[in-house]
């Protein structure tokens, strides 16, 4: 972009795309904002009227909201913890030379290719089912009482299922990061008297910091909106024990036909997601700087 003319041309040519994307974002956002101030219920068509902040008051004072907020944070935090720690350990393991490395790497990536609904259903019916599930059979083999995972620990089970899906992603990113580590640095550390643990904490982990940051940021975006896994396993229950914000908004607008309330929830969710994003960038954003 050397000359004024080429800069102007660049702006002109990029503008259709920018305008399209802007419209694509602005229209649904403003409609959501507009609906959130209406009393808009699909059971009472044609009765829409402006209600001010009522929808927000109802949504925020709903006891399910606080529960859903905590569940969302627990789900995101839990999955992040399991996938980054587990991903780092798996990446360390797969970085070692061993026979059948290529096959193992493909196998490890496999869960990422399974659709969320499918994997959640497989876990629900084939593993966690208290009568027919594999875990129940194992428990019975040892003479134990089968554990009803989705009823006794619904959120924990969903965290486990979602972690299983996202572990390959974290492993893959961290493995490539690990492979880009200069071997001479590790050798230098070895000569400097650093043992395996010191080499991990002083050399490898700092090198992985940027990749871990990327994993956390990308996963947070997707984990805030986990929906399919909850829908097909627990339906948010028992009670609201496994309801996250996304699922609460779904219940509000599509099970209770309350478009206004659902829109208010959506706006709240956008604000909360931004708060989470600001916190994340404050905490780990500096890792992304060169």
């Amino acid at each position: 972009m050397a000359t004024k003319a080429s800069r102007a041309a660049a702006r002109l040519m990029i503008s259709p795309a920018v305008l399209l994307l802007l419209g694509w974002m602005i229209v649904p956002l403003s409609m959501t904002l507009y609906f959130s101030f209406l009393r808009y219920n699909l059971l009472m068509p044609g009765m829409e009227e402006f209600t001010g902040w009522t929808n927000y008051r109802f949504f925020l004072t709903d006891p399910a909201f606080t529960a859903a907020l905590w569940n969302t944070l627990l789900l995101v935090g839990g999955v992040l913890l399991i996938t980054t720690v587990g991903g780092t350990l798996l990446a360390l393991l797969m970085d070692q030379p061993f026979w059948g490395q290529g096959i193992v790497r493909i196998l490890v990536i496999a869960p990422f290719f399974v659709m969320p609904t499918v994997s959640a259903l497989v876990w629900k019916n084939m593993f966690m089912n208290p009568v027919n599930g594999l875990f129940a059979h194992v428990a019975k083999f040892f003479g134990l009482q089968p554990y009803d995972f989705l009823a006794q620990a619904p959120l924990g089970s969903i965290i486990f299922i979602v972690s299983w899906q996202w572990l390959p992603f974290a492993t893959l990113i961290l493995l490539t990061a690990l492979q880009s580590l200069d071997q001479e640095q590790l050798e230098a550390a070895e000569m400097d008297g650093a043992g395996a643990l010191s080499r991990f904490f002083y050399i490898m982990l700092p090198h992985l910091a940027r990749a871990i940051t990327v994993v956390i940021l990308i996963q947070t975006i997707f984990l805030l909106s986990v929906f399919a896994e909850i829908l097909v396993t627990t339906n948010g229950g028992p009670g609201v024990a496994s309801t996250n914000l996304t699922y609460l908004i779904y219940m509000q607008s599509l099970l209770q036909f309350d478009v206004g309330g659902g829109s208010a929830g959506g706006v709240v969710a956008i604000i909360l997601a931004n708060i989470v994003a600001i916190f994340l960038m404050r905490m780990i954003g500096k890792n992304l700087e060169a």
Partner: peptide, 14 residues
């Protein structure tokens, strides 16, 4: 023994 590497192998984050 102490070694000086071709790439220097300095620890970039320190």
């Amino acid at each position: 023994l102490a070694m000086v590497f071709q790439s220097y192998a300095l620890y970039p984050h320190m």
